[in-house]
Design a binder for these strands. Structure first.
Lengths: 202, 202
DNA sequence: ATGTCGAGACGAGACGGACCGTCTTGACGC
DNA sequence: GCGTCAAGACGGTCCGTCTCGTCTCGACAT
C-alpha cells in the first residue's frame, strides 16, 4: 500500500495550463450553460488532457470556484473599500445598483448561477467560498456599516452580520430564485426599507 | 401528415404511475442527492418504464416540481392563513421559526435544494414555481402584512413585495448559500431588525 | 347487452451517443 | 529518473429515442 502523497507538489505545475483551464471553464459555462458544462469540454477548450484537471481539482465546482478566485484576485492589489462619503444611504444604493448591474450582465449571470448551485450542494465548497470569496467582500460591507455605526447612523446594538444579510439577502434571493426583475428602483427600495424598517416612523 | 393532437389527452393517463413517479423522485433525491438523481433511477424506483416519464414531463426539474405540487396540495382544503394574533412581531417570528425548522429537516433540505437549483437554471420552471407554489404562499404573507398595515403597525407607503423580500430573503439566501447556521435566534433577529430598521430609533 | 377493433398508454429494455473517472502511452523538462 | 504534460483508450452510467408485446378504454356493429 503506497502512501501516495496528497497533490501538494505544486512545484512542477504548469501555470499556463492552469490558467487555460480556469479561463475555459468560465467561458464555457457562460456559453453552454451549467447543465451542459463538462470536464471533457473544459479540457478540449483549454487544449489540455483530462487528467490534468482531475490531477489538481476534486470536482467541477472546485474548478469553477478557482476560476472566480482568479478573476477576483486579478484587479488591483487587494480589497478596495466600499464608498464612504458619509451618506450611508447613497453609498449603499450605489453599491447595490452596481451589484444588480453585474447580476444582470449576461457574461456573469450564468457563471455565478453555476457557482451558486455548486455551493448549494457541496458544503466543502461552500466553506471555501465563505472563506476566500464571500468572506473578504463581507468584511468590506461590515466595515462600511461599522463606520456608519460610529457616526451614529446605525443602531448601537445592531448585529452587523444580520444587517449585511438584510441588505444583500433579498437581492440575491430574488436573483437566484427569479422572484422578480432586478431593477435599480428595487435596489433603492431595499436600502430605504432596510434602513427605516417596516414599521411607521414618526 | 397526421394532425397528432397535443398531449393534453390526460384521460388515458395512469394516475397510479403518476403518483409513483412523483413519490419516487422526491424520495430518491433525498436519498442519493441532487447530483446523482437520474430519470432511470426514478423509473426503476417507481416500477415504471422510462418512456412514461418522458411522455408526461419535459425535464427532471418538472418532475421534481410536480412532486412538490402533489405534497403541497395534499393537506387540508387549500390555503391556511398565517397566524394573526394582532402581535405582528410574534406572529412573524413564529412563521420564520417554522420555516427554519423545515429547512433544517433533512427530509426536506435536499429536495428543496434540488428544486431551487432547477429554478435557478430554468426560467420556464421558475415561472411555473412562481405561479403555482411560491405565489399562493406569498399571497398569504402579504395578506398578513396588509392586516398589520391596516392596524397601523406598518408604514402606510410600504411596498409589500419589498417587505416580503426583506423578511424571507435573508433567511432563504443564508440557507441556500450556507452563509451561516439557521437558528431560531437568527429568525428573531431578522424579524426585529426588519421591523425596526437598521437606523437608531428613539 | 355483447363482441370486435383501433388508439394510446403502459412496463420493459435495446440502442447509439455523451460524459464520467481511471489508466496507459510517449514526449518533455527539471 | 521522476513527475507533469497532451492525447486518448477504456468500462461504466445515464441520456433521450425507439421498438416490442400487453393492457385498457371508448366507438361502433351486431
Amino acid at each position: 500500500m503506497t502512501p501516495r502523497k496528497p497533490p501538494s507538489n505544486t512545484a512542477r505545475r504548469n501555470e499556463a495550463s492552469r490558467r487555460a483551464i480556469l479561463t475555459a471553464a468560465f467561458d464555457l459555462v457562460q456559453e453552454v450553460g451549467y447543465a451542459k458544462l463538462s470536464i471533457e469540454g473544459i479540457a478540449a477548450r483549454a487544449g489540455v488532457g483530462k487528467q490534468t484537471i482531475y490531477r489538481w481539482w476534486p470536482s467541477k465546482g472546485a474548478v469553477l470556484f478557482d476560476a472566480f478566485l482568479m478573476l477576483s484576485e486579478q484587479p488591483d492589489g487587494g480589497g478596495a473599500a466600499l464608498p464612504d462619503t458619509g451618506d450611508l444611504e447613497a453609498d449603499l444604493k450605489a453599491v447595490l445598483r452596481a451589484t444588480i448591474e453585474e447580476l444582470n450582465d449576461p457574461r456573469y449571470d450564468e457563471p455565478m448561477r453555476a457557482l451558486s448551485t455548486e455551493i448549494t450542494h457541496d458544503p466543502t465548497l461552500a466553506a471555501l467560498y465563505s472563506e476566500r470569496l464571500d468572506g473578504p467582500m463581507r468584511e468590506l460591507k461590515k466595515q462600511r456599516l461599522r463606520s456608519a455605526q460610529r457616526a451614529g447612523q446605525l443602531a448601537d446594538d445592531l448585529d452587523l452580520e444580520v444587517a449585511v444579510d438584510m441588505i444583500w439577502g433579498p437581492l440575491l434571493n430574488r436573483w437566484l430564485q427569479r422572484g422578480g426583475p432586478l431593477t435599480l428602483d428595487y435596489a433603492d427600495s431595499i436600502v430605504e426599507t432596510a434602513l427605516n424598517g417596516l414599521r411607521p416612523r414618526r
